[in-house]
Amino acid sequence: MSEFLTLTITAMVPFLFVAQGTMLSGRAGIFNVAQEGLMLLGAAVGYVVSLKAGGNVVGLVAAALAGALVGFILSWATTSLRLDQFVVGLALFFLAGGTASLLYRVVIGNDEPPRIAPLPDLVFGQDALVFVAVALSLFLWWWLYRTDAGMRLRSVGENPKAADSLGINVTRTRLWAGTVGAALMAVGGAYLPMVFSGVYADGIVAGRGWLAIALAFFGGWRPQFILAGSAFFAAMEVLAQRAQVSGIGVPHQFVSMLPYVATLVVMVFAFRWALVPQFLGKNYDRESRIVG
């Protein structure tokens, strides 16, 4: 049982980084749908840099920077250029995924990939990022709900026109929220080769990016509920893996479906709560004469 708990806590980490990144962007009104691509990019950059520059920390920083770049492009294209968020998000999903694949191919080629050293345990058999992820979630809750700056960010996602009229720079808020959010997503991706597999592979993310969007909805776009909800998503993942290995009399394919099917079922309830930022996914044009 304690092993199940340990595995679940580890599995929570990527979900937390990616879902909190999604939440942070989303509370400012940027609906990022490139998570899957960003995680791949983070995984590839994290793996390659850790391998070549020697050290997971450097790899994580590099992954965060790569993610930040993609997030900046998304925020810039949807604020300054006012392009559709879903369309740009999908385009960046391809580009990030393609870049990840290309990077790996260029550096490693078709040889057997060397494994990178796993993140060292800190205490209780858990690595440092576990604590960072939980601390980040608590910090985000405090920052969003207990500081002036957090309130400003929330107002941009709820009613950018009101925020703008009070001198809050909507574009700048969205730019950095989208950038930091995407950086967190890439870190979530970089965690995968550093803890689970030791190597990069094109299928390494396996839908976790999409599940993280579901988690953001499930958590009502609130950091504290996302923290709680990530345990459920992680437990599903671990359960599916364990049942696959030990066998429970059901064909393993059906067990592997479990996280996705369970998420779909959960979504039915999550969307009923309807705790969604009012301007999620909508662009803001100050001089538009149609009042939103």
């Binding site: 309130m151 929330r154 709820e158 009613n159 026109k161 009101a162 925020a163 009070l166």
Partner: peptide
């Protein structure tokens, strides 16, 4: 058309954007 954040309280709406 009032420029207010519907889900915020009266105080939050008034304070929003200032240094409290």
């Amino acid at each position: 058309n009032f420029l207010q954040v519907d889900v915020f309280t009266v105080t939050e709406n008034i304070v929003l954007g200032t240094d409290s």
